[in-house]
Each structure stands twice: as C-alpha cells, then as structure tokens.
Simulated assay, not measured.
Amino acid sequence: MVDGTRVAAVDEVPENGSYLFTAEDAYSRPTELILVRCDDEPGIEAWPNTCTHENQRFDRGTGAAVRDGEIICPKHGSMFDTCSGACENGEAAGTSLPDVDIAVSDGGVFLTDDEYTYLSAGAAGEDEDGDDGDDDDIPSSTSHIGF
C-alpha cells in the first residue's frame, strides 16, 4: 500500500497533455500541479503548473501542450523535459521545475510529497461546474505561439 493520497487513475493522465489538480503547499496556499507522461519509470511525473521564467500556467484547464516528451510554456515557448523538469531553451533556459513526489501503484497515481496536501481535481478555485470564476490573479498568455 502506498503512503499518500490518490490523485488520479493512470489512465486519466493523457499521452500528450496533462492532468491538472490542486494541492495545498507547506504555507497553506492552494497550488496547481500537473501530472504528465514520462518515458522513465514510473511512467508519470508531477510538476508545478507554472513556468520557472514567469508565473505562467502550463495547463489552463484543457491540458498543457506536451510534444516529444516536453511541456511547452504557452507564453515564450520554453520546453521542459517531462521526466526531469529541466529546460534548455527559451526564456527559462538553465532552470528546472521543482520536484513533486508521487508514486504509481495499482493503476493509480498518489501524491506522496510531504510539502503538499491534495485538495481537488482541476484548477485552484474551480467550482463544481468547472468554472473558476475570476482569473485576475493568474497571468494570461500574450504569446503568438499556437498549439
């Protein structure tokens, strides 16, 4: 048995995209995290839902852009390795996404990181209808990049 909270079924994590959920961080703040597929074991990794260059969300509720094993920032196009979180290009080059500990067991993905407490599936502040109401505190993209 895994010591952690079940976040999602493995099958819910898309091959090209992300599964968005919200956890409370060590400072009691709601924090969006994403699950993405990875070629390394255990086959799925978790990362914060923000680019290291700017507080730009990867997944705005429809899945992050993931191509060839990299999460693509929608604002400047920096690409983060889905397995290591490392970025080697664009505005975020030389940075890495902070680790979020998970475990994959019995067809489920479990949040095992002591720094986070699972709150809910979806974006921070979403209501039961999937509407988060006010996005004023979350930057929107001004990018010309389309996926």
Results as ranks from 00 to 15, higher is better:
Gly130Asn: 11
Gly122Leu: 11
Tyr118Met: 08
Ser120Ala: 15
Asp132Lys: 11
Gly108Thr: 01
Asp114Asn: 12
Gly107Ser: 02
Ala103Glu: 15
Asp129Met: 06
Ile145Phe: 15
Asp114Lys: 10
Pro98Ile: 02
Thr117Tyr: 01
Ala123Trp: 00
Gly85Val: 11
Ala124Thr: 15
Thr112Arg: 01
Ile102Thr: 12
Glu126His: 02
Asp137Thr: 01
Gly125Gln: 12
Val109Met: 05
Glu115Ile: 00
Glu91Val: 11
Cys83Glu: 10
Pro98Lys: 09
Ser141His: 01
Thr112Ala: 02
Asp113Ser: 03
Ala124Ile: 02
Gly108Asn: 14
Thr95Ala: 13
Asp137Leu: 07
Ile145Tyr: 14
Asp99Cys: 08
Asp136Gln: 07
Asp136Leu: 09
Thr117Val: 13
Ser105Asp: 15
Ser143Pro: 05
Ala92Ser: 14
Ala103His: 07
Pro139Trp: 04
Gly133Ile: 06
Leu119Gly: 00
Leu97Cys: 13
Asp131Arg: 03
Gly125Phe: 12
Ser141Pro: 00
Glu128Gln: 10
Thr112Tyr: 02
Gly130Pro: 12
Glu88Trp: 06
Gly125His: 12
Thr112Leu: 01
Cys87Tyr: 02
Ser120Gly: 03
Thr95Ser: 15
Leu119Arg: 13
His144Cys: 08
Asp127Glu: 11
Pro139Gly: 01
Asp132Ile: 14
Pro98Ser: 13
Asp137Pro: 00
Val104Gly: 07
Glu91Met: 11
Thr142Met: 01
Asp101Thr: 08
Gly90Arg: 04
Asp99Asn: 13
Glu115His: 05
Ala92Cys: 15
Cys87Trp: 01
Gly122Met: 13
Glu126Met: 10
Asp106Ser: 15
Asn89Tyr: 05
Thr112Ile: 08
Thr82Asn: 08
Gly146Trp: 10
Ser140Val: 14
Gly108Ser: 15
Thr142Phe: 05
Gly107Asp: 04
Asp99Thr: 14
Asp127Lys: 04
Leu111Trp: 12
Gly94Leu: 06
Cys87Pro: 03
Thr117Asn: 10
Thr112Gly: 03
Ile138Tyr: 11
Ala92Thr: 04
Thr82Asp: 08
Val104His: 09
Gly130Leu: 12
Ala86Thr: 08
Asp137Ser: 05
Ser140Ile: 09
Asp132Gln: 12
Ala123Gln: 15
Ala92Gly: 05
Leu111Pro: 10
Asp99Phe: 04
Ser96Val: 07
Ser84Ala: 07
Gly146Glu: 15
Asp129Gly: 05
Ala92Pro: 01
Pro139Arg: 09
Pro139Phe: 07
Asp135Ser: 11
Glu126Thr: 01
Cys83Ile: 06
Ala123Thr: 01
Ala123Cys: 02
Asp81His: 14
Pro139Lys: 02
Ser96His: 12
Glu128His: 08
Val100His: 07
Glu115Ser: 11
Gly90Trp: 06
Asp132Glu: 14
Ser141Leu: 03
Leu111Arg: 09
Ala103Cys: 06
Phe80Gln: 09
Ile102Lys: 13
Asp136Val: 07
Gly94Glu: 07
Ser105Leu: 06
Val104Asn: 06
Glu91Lys: 01
Leu97Lys: 10
Asp134Gly: 07
Ala86Gln: 14
